[in-house]
Amino acid sequence: MFSEGDVTAIFLTLRLATTVTLILLVLGAPLAWWLARTNSRLKGPIGALVALPLVLPPTVLGFYLLLTLGPNGPIGQVTQSLDLGTLAFSYSGLVIGSVLYSLPFVVQPLQNAFEAIGDRPLEVAATLGATPIDRYFSIAIPMAKPGFFTAAILGFAHTVGEFGVVLMIGGNIPGETRVVSVQIYDHVEALAYDEANRLALLMIVFSFLVLLSVYGFRKKSQRQILSFGS
């Protein structure tokens, strides 16, 4: 049903999305926690920066990543001096691009979930002898669990669906940077509409199921968050 190239693209996409989601959950959670709790004047600017990928055309993000990661860019020069080559047009570069691109989709649900916890459970935990880090792991993360679920799914799905950033910094290398969305583009370019159609339908079904699970889960979990203090 799918050609060898399609299957490679599907697995590459899944691998990329999984890697990016894991990185985003680990890095995004403390960032979301900070955004949810801080009174710092930096909260506004940092929050806006995190949300930028929501409004920017992916090509803008990809373009600057290309400049930065490319042979003459600051990061490109560092990676070259470390004998790592450049990250542009590589899987690693794609991961970095995707992490930035999907950041708001992970940080925002987490931030909402952390904000919904309120101060009280953390104050209680403090009086019971929990240090700030302990409170983060034993109270904040478990209580924000529904938020983690939503964040993981949205981050994963959004990475699967990206195209512009991939094209700008990933290019079109089979098994390395040629993900499903690029593969579909290739099929269309080659006027192979049947192949394009199969992959495109797959994406539609996948995306629908993902969103269905998010909305189905949200209904249940909202009750759980709201039940605190009732």
């Binding site: 009280r120 104050e123 209680v124 403090a126 009086t127 019971l128 002898g129 209580m143 203090g229 009732s230």
Partner: peptide, 15 residues
């Protein structure tokens, strides 16, 4: 968290 203080809040504050 370094004070040994028991605190019972006005509303339920169970985890």
């Amino acid at each position: 968290h370094e004070r040994r203080v028991g605190y019972v809040f006005q509303e339920s504050s169970l985890f």
